[in-house]
């Protein structure tokens, strides 16, 4: 190997190492939120929900009576944010702390719902789907370029039987074939 080639080889390794370190935080965020969002048909990746249902005696109640009865069953904040009759059978009452009370008149049921954001995942997912826009776009663009560099530079990192011409090449090919199989299923 010529001296110039050796220098380039060493530079590539150093850059790969340093960019790899830089990418750790971003990779954790995107990988964890990617897993969480991939399965959003099976669970809510952003919020955990607490639900309780209480059956009331079947009798006519005004919204004030519903509210006062609800306090006997659930721990509700003192002040409500607002209330709304969705239809003649369904009353929704909104409280702070993402708490909702639903009264189903025809079934004489009180439904209590409290939604709590998942502390880390809510934020990771927000970053993954770019809720913030602004500077986060630039930061995640840079991360994408870093990933691209890490992928391409890896091809020239190792020589010999673990390099691109032998084992590395086979693994790279597998890594291309798997997405290619799915690629052609997209119309």
């Amino acid at each position: 190997m010529s001296k110039k080639k050796k220098n380039l080889f060493l530079l590539n390794r150093s850059l790969h190492r340093d960019i790899g370190y830089l990418s750790i935080g971003f990779t954790i965020i995107f990988a964890l939120s990617g897993l969480a969002l991939n399965h959003r048909d099976d669970w809510n990746p952003n919020y955990s929900m607490q639900r309780k249902v209480v059956k009331l005696s079947p009798e006519e109640r005004s919204s004030e009576e519903v509210l006062s009865e609800a306090k006997n069953h659930f721990s509700l904040p003192e002040k409500m944010k607002g209330k709304f009759w969705v239809d003649p059978n369904q009353l929704k009452v909104f409280y702070p702390q993402d708490t909702t009370l639903i009264y189903l008149k025809d079934k004489s049921e009180l439904h209590f719902e409290k939604i709590t954001p998942r502390f880390l995942l809510r934020r990771f997912n927000g970053l993954h789907v770019n809720e913030l826009k602004s500077y986060w776009i630039a930061a995640s663009d840079i991360y994408s370029l870093c990933l691209l560099y890490l992928a391409l530079s890896a091809l020239f990192m190792v020589k010999g039987k673990y390099g691109i011409k032998e084992r590395g090449g086979i693994l790279t090919l597998i890594g291309l074939i798997i997405p290619a199989f799915f690629f052609f299923q997209i119309i």
Partner: peptide, 24 residues
């Protein structure tokens, strides 16, 4: 109007409305 509501819909990711908006 009583018993009437209207859905506000955006393309996924264009705007992300917070759950805490309920009742506001």
């Amino acid at each position: 109007k009583e018993y009437q509501s209207l859905r506000i819909k955006v393309r996924d990711g264009d705007m992300v409305f917070p759950i805490s908006a309920k009742g506001k």
